[in-house]
């Protein structure tokens, strides 16, 4: 009986994902295609969007069968990846240094806190002006806010490490660099990964802003182009694609985090057992 039941049990996480997304599409369908509420009737309904998205010969020139669609995805993914890697390397590095050295913190924190609230969009003119190519400009815009999120979370991660670990390490004979690699880095890792997930989300948000204004190709550019051409079906395809890519990339970061922090996962597993 137990075994038989198990075959029908869906992982609650998967179940939740399916219900919430299908529920949303259903609501969208009802509002736009069934009730046709005023103003909502202007929105493309899900049937129109999905049939265009999956059509070999799409009416508006965009579907999973067109080369341009994948080119735009490739551009966007490449930009996010470059910006995210840069934000991770520089942000984690800076955050660890800030948490590790009081002097470094005193000199860097005020500057970081001043630059951090400036929205990515505000950086666009200067980025375009200074950087040699528009491509680099878009990557910079994608990078900048993700970078600050990473710095801040890494810093908080180092600060949250219990003093007792530093004491244990130092009395066992650690040199400063042993403490850095064996206490500071692993101790901050959970917060670093929280930061990286936030950073990944921010990177996608900033990317679209950058692509709309300074870009060539990419999903943000696609949305902006189709806005000029009033092709709303394509805009929704672009939006949905962004959502899926954002979801997938966050899941990858989460997975990597779980793999690197085996001790955390097992702790949770142990608590549930």
């Amino acid at each position: 009986m137990g075994l038989h039941m198990k075959r029908w049990t869906v992982n609650p996480e998967t179940w939740g994902a399916v219900v919430s997304i299908l529920g949303f599409v259903l609501l969208w369908y009802i509002l736009t295609a069934v009730l046709k509420l005023p103003r909502f009737d202007k929105l493309p309904n899900p049937v129109a969007v999905f049939s265009a998205w999956l059509s070999p010969h799409p009416q508006f020139g965009l579907s999973i069968f067109t080369r341009g669609y994948y080119l735009d995805i490739l551009y966007s993914v490449g930009r996010v990846l470059a910006a995210f890697v840069l934000a991770t390397v520089l942000g984690v590095g800076l955050g660890l240094l800030m948490g590790w050295s009081r002097v470094f913190f005193d000199y860097s924190f005020p500057l970081v806190e001043t630059l951090r609230p400036i929205p990515p969009i505000a950086w666009i003119p200067l980025a375009v002006l200074v950087l040699p190519t528009a491509e680099l400009g878009v990557i910079f815009i994608t990078f900048i806010a993700a970078f600050f999120a990473t710095v801040l979370n890494t810093l908080l991660g180092v600060r949250s490490i219990d003093e007792v670990y530093f004491r244990a390490a130092s009395c066992l004979g650690s040199r400063p660099r042993d403490v850095f690699w064996n206490v500071v880095v692993p101790g901050a890792l959970p917060a670093i990964f929280t930061g990286l997930q936030v950073a990944m989300g921010i990177a996608w948000i900033s990317l679209v802003a950058g692509e709309m204004i300074a870009g060539q190709r990419g999903l943000g550019y696609l949305i902006y182009e189709d806005y000029s051409n009033l092709q709303f079906v394509n805009i929704v395809i672009g939006m949905a694609t962004l959502g899926l890519l954002g979801y997938g990339s966050s899941a990858l970061v989460r997975m990597l985090g779980r793999r690197l922090m085996a001790w955390e996962g097992r702790r949770r597993g142990g608590a549930m057992a």
Partner: peptide, 20 residues
């Protein structure tokens, strides 16, 4: 002088590194 492995402390609360 400062802390050293000739005088080791077993702490009041657990100080094992959770990540090792």
């Amino acid at each position: 002088g400062g802390p050293g492995p000739d005088r080791l402390v077993v702490f009041q609360e657990t100080a094992l590194f959770p990540w090792m």
